[in-house]
Design a binder for these strands. Structure first.
Lengths: 104, 104
DNA sequence: TTTTCCAATAAGCGAACGCTTATATGACGG
DNA sequence: CCGTCATATAAGCGTTCGCTTATTGGAAAA
């Protein structure tokens, strides 16, 4: 049931976008805010939710707060998907492609 | 953005459990209801939502409605997970295990 | 030290959600 | 037929959600 929180937290499109952006680069709340059409408190609230699920980590530096995504926290979701991938034989080839791409 | 609906629809634990049960076996609404502590309309509503996302298919037979899960509809979610799996090199081995298990 | 800046928190609001009970729609069985 | 059964739909209710504006805490800048 560890995937429950992940599904819930990632269900919101804005919050998922925040997570995805933080996978690309560490950045501050202000940096994040620049990319979205919502207020700073809204960004901070999403970060708090993501942090609660372990999807994001914080690094304080003076008055700045640097956030970065922690992909390891996706583990239960990855496991869930993998578990049901077996119901789906036609996509094994695609999975092999993923492996190939990662070997590069 | 095709994964947006999937995240939203699968975010509810009960609905996700319904989906998972229908991956194991086709069954009627009454069959499903027997496994959950919620009313029949609640079950039907979840099925409607799942059907809207293509996660579930219906087969009418007289007054019975047989439902079964369609794992193909997980495609966008699988793609999303695979995309971010590359941020996570430590789990490549696990992915290979998945492949191995599927080859059996 | 006072002002400015970054981020978090508080409070409240409207919309969406998941559930309930009540009712409707059909199909089967007596 | 008529009553029962399987499911869907309607309406309403309490809760959760994501957002807003207002405020606070604390660190840098002036």
């Amino acid at each position: 049931m560890a995937e429950a929180d992940l599904f819930r937290v990632l269900a919101d499109p804005t919050r998922r976008a925040v997570f995805e952006r933080l996978l690309q680069a560490e950045m501050t709340v202000s940096d994040l805010k620049a990319g979205f059409a919502i207020s700073q408190p809204a960004i901070s609230q999403h970060l708090g939710t993501l942090k609660g699920a372990g999807l994001v980590q914080e690094r304080r530096e003076g008055r700045f707060s640097y956030y970065r995504a922690d992909p390891d926290a996706l583990a239960p979701l990855v496991d869930w998907v993998d578990r049901y991938r077996s119901f789906w034989p036609e996509r094994i080839e695609r999975l092999k492609d993923v492996l190939k791409r990662m070997d590069q």
